Every structure is written in C-alpha cells, then in structure tokens.
Amino acid sequence: MDIFETVHNRKNTRSVKWDLVKDLFQSEDVLPMWVADMDFKAPDAVNQALIERAKHGIYGYTIVDEKVKSSIVNWISKRHHWNIKSEWLSFSPGVVTTLHMAIQALTEPDDKILIQTPVYTPFYKVIEAHNRQIVKSQLVYSENQYHINFQDLEEKMKTGVKAFILCNPHNPVGRVWTKDELQSIANLCEKYDVLILSDEIHCDLTFPNVEHTSIASLSEEVAVRTITCMAPSKTFNLAGLQASYAITSNNEYRKKLDQQFMIQGFHGLNTMGNTALEAAYTYGEEWLDGLKEILQGHYHYVKEQLEKYTDLKVTIAEGTYLVWIDCSSLKLNPKELRKFFVEKAKVGLNPGIDYGEEGAQFMRMNIACPRQTLVEGINRIIEAISN
C-alpha cells in the first residue's frame, strides 16, 4: 500500500522522534528508530474527521458521548471477540496516566507490585513514583524467544503482591501471550488475590494469524479483578492526540479510578482526541489490516538481514512494531553498545538496559517506517558491524 511506502519529512513538526535527535544522540546524522510512534500518516478517515472538526472552529468543553463509546465497544467486539459494556469505560490522556491513577486509587504505599522483566520502562516509574515496591519476575529467554516462569511468578505472588502490571502484547520482547498462558496468570492472581492492571495498548498490532486475547475476557471472575488499558494511539499513530481508555466490570474499581482522575484534575478527552478515536475505530479497519501485513514483512526483513550478515539475533515476535535485538555477540557493555549504534552505525535505538538489567545485551528497534527508511537503518548496522 502506497500510504506505507511514502517517506514523510517529520522534522520541524515538534516530533519527539525526529526533532530531538541532536539532543539525544549528540549528532544530526543519526537515523531515529527508537520511540514508539510510526512514520506513517493516520488513516484518511481520521484526518478528514479532524479537518471537518477544525472547520467548525469552536473548541469548547467536549463530552465523550454514547457514539464514541459505541465505537470502542464495537471495535473490541469485532477485533478481539470480547463483549464489553459502555458503562465499563473510563477515559484518560494515556495508558501510563491510567496506570498512575490505578496504582494510587487501588493500592497503598509500600504495597508490592509485580512486573515481568525486561519490560516497558514506565512500569518501573509508575510503581516507584507512588512509593510502592517493585517485585520482578524475570521472563525466560530460551531459543530466541521469551516465556513465563510460572514457578517464579507464583513464588513472587506468595510474598504478598497486591497488584500485577501485565504487558500484552509484551513490550519490548514482542510476545503475544496465549489463552493458556493468560489463564495460568489469572489462576495465580485469583489464588493470591492480586489486582491485574493489563496494558494492552499494542493489542491491535499482532501479526496476521496471531490473535490477541484480553485477560479480562477469560471469565467474569478474572474481569472483576482486572483493569484493562487500551488506546487507538499505537494502532493508528495518534499518540499526540492523547486519547485512551480503561475497561473494568468492577464498579468499585471504576468509581475509585474515576475519583482519582477527578482529584488530579482530569476531565475526559480533548476535542481532537475524541474525534480521532471515533473515526479510527469506525473507519480504520482496512488501513490497519494493510499496516499489519507491512509490519510483518518489515519484521521478517530485519530478522533475515541481520541474521544473514551479522551475528545479531532478532527475538521471535508475534506482534508490535518493536524489534528486540540480541547483541551479545558484539561483547559490549550497555554503555559501549549504545555508543556503537549511535557513533558507528548512526542509528538511534532504545538501549535494552532501560527495560531492566535483563536487557543489558539488547537493543530495541522501531520498524514502523517506510521500507526505504528501514533498509537504510539495517544497512547502516550491517556496515558498522562488518567494519
């Protein structure tokens, strides 16, 4: 699809990815392939909806009405086979914001909160920021793929864990947890009375023929102990519009969460985020199906090229547009590894150490860009290693 092949100049648009290159990498000629947004335009229907809304010219206080809520309910039913109710929804500027609110609303200072490492960097921050204790269960890296150590998970829950932040699909390792894996997690959370905070922001970005399951969809018993965090932001490249939502069938949780939002001064979605969310979920399916094929092709290209021409290994993934690269063959420490990619390869990636010490020998690459950009980045890496 041409929409995914066009190279757009994003410089001077206040882009975090493109306009902070010199600040972050101390050089103008580094190709940024790090932060998780895409170099693709949003679907035409979304852009048109925003233009039409802008033509109105009045941006007063905005409600999230039943039409917007229905677009979410219908999307989740159609794409994820989970039937939710509109009254289960709460709205937020972003998933990380919701995690902050949920931790404040539903746990107490010094409570233990479990994460599976290596994992998305803000998970550490949302726990530490509110004086909760981080408990880590390390994922098992075996035969180039990650798996859950259920024995360790249970041992950690036994210590009095109050909440578990689940990442599904997992960032950065690219696993899409199976129904069986999720059921085993749910069983442990039920056994030890653990609240589940499920970050499912990448749920729409599984590779073709890989199905995402929301842990709360497994049963009513699991649903009532879960807050599910979703957004159209990763799916349709809308992060700057700050529109996300939380889902829970537990009325008490939802009231406490909404109360926490109110205490912090958040009152629903902004006008443009509201508009974009509805348009994306109403008209975005064809665009998304095209994107998923592109991303799968990009992933296979990166894996094939790096493993053919270098000793780097690309972790087996089932979704997201973030590729987790095992760089242990370079025999560099994390500081040297970052320096190598920035100064020698001239490519800006996320250092794996940022996701936990388990990621010390890894780098995370964002492949959500036109093939031309991807080829340039991969060629730079291959050339730097061969030299």
Score class of each variant (00 low, 15 high):
I51R: 07
V35G: 05
R53E: 05
S15Y: 10
E66P: 00
S77G: 14
V35W: 08
N83S: 14
L31P: 00
S70P: 00
W75Q: 03
L50F: 05
P43H: 03
R79Q: 13
V46Q: 11
H81W: 03
W75V: 03
V68R: 01
N83I: 13
K11W: 08
W18T: 12
V68F: 01
R14W: 12
V30R: 08
S70N: 15
K22F: 04
E66C: 01
H80C: 02
N74E: 14
M33Q: 04
E52K: 11
A45W: 05
D37V: 14
I72A: 02
K22P: 05
V16N: 09
W82A: 08
F25Y: 15
E28C: 09
R53I: 03
I58K: 04
N9A: 02
K22N: 10
K67E: 10
I76G: 01
A36F: 10
P43L: 02
V30N: 04
L50G: 06
S71K: 03
D44M: 09
V46I: 12
S86E: 15
P32G: 04
D65V: 03
I51N: 03
A49F: 04
I84G: 02
W82M: 07
K17S: 08
K22V: 10
S15G: 02
N74A: 15
R79G: 00
D44S: 12
F40R: 04
H81E: 13
D29L: 11
K85A: 15
F25C: 06
S15N: 05
E87H: 12
K67T: 09
V46T: 10
K22S: 05
I63R: 02
I76W: 00
R53V: 05
H8T: 15
Q26Y: 06
H8C: 08
A54R: 12
I76Y: 07
V73T: 13
F40T: 09
V68I: 13
S86Y: 06
D19F: 06
V46G: 07
W34M: 14
I58L: 06
T62I: 00
K22D: 11
S27M: 07
F25N: 02
H56C: 01
S15H: 08
Q26N: 15
E66W: 01
E66M: 00
K55G: 06
F25H: 07
K85C: 13
E87F: 10
L24I: 14
S71P: 10
D65E: 00
K17V: 15
S27G: 09
K78A: 14
V16Q: 08
V35H: 09
A49C: 07
V30T: 07
G57T: 03
A42H: 01
S15T: 07
P32Q: 06
D37K: 06
A49L: 11
D39W: 01
V7R: 08
H80G: 02
H56P: 00
F40Q: 09
V16I: 13
R10K: 11
R10F: 15
W82R: 05
H56L: 08
R14Y: 07
V46S: 06
I58S: 07
